[in-house]
Every structure is written in structure tokens, then in C-alpha cells.
Amino acid sequence: MTKKAKKGRITVDREFCKGCYLCISVCPTGSIGISGTLNQKGYYPVEFLDGKNQGEESRCTGCTTCAIVCPDVAIEVYRE
């Protein structure tokens, strides 16, 4: 990951996420993980690993791949 890579981030609507984890399977930078707490529907939703979880800077580039495969439109993507 060069310094020139675009910086991105995502937000996850915990209540819309149904825990299918398709986003995790396609994320090229490993920036999405599984939350440790259930949502109201009883799923473990995904969460954005914004760097803290990995002990390093987020590698997310805002490529939107996760949002494209998300069946539940639970992900919004931002890019610098």
C-alpha cells in the first residue's frame, strides 16, 4: 500500500446488516470485520476496521466493492 493510495472509509448500519459477510469476502484490503455484539435482529453485523482494530492506519481506499455486494444497502462509502 503506497502512500498515494486513496483514503476511504465506510459506515455500516448495524441494524440493516444481516451478517451475510459477502462484504468481508470481497474487500481487497481486509478492512471489514465482524462485530462482537448482536444487532436487534440477532445477527452479528460487520464493522469497519478503521485502523484501531489492526493497530495501524486504515487501508480502505473507498473502492465501494463492499457496498456493491451488500444485499442490504447497509454500507455507505466515503472517499477523500
Binding site: 435482529k41 473507498g62 465501494t64 456493491i68 442490504d72 444497502v73 462509502v77 466515503y78 472517499r79 477523500e80
Partner: peptide
């Protein structure tokens, strides 16, 4: 920062 992916206008804000 720009929002580059969001719910389309003609998709109701509802959990399916």
C-alpha cells in the same frame, strides 16, 4: 471527503 456510495433515491429506507 465525498460520499461515493449511498442508498439510491428509489429504494425506500427499509430493512428487507
Amino acid at each position: 471527503e465525498k460520499k461515493v456510495f449511498e442508498r439510491p433515491r428509489y429504494l425506500k429506507k427499509a430493512s428487507t
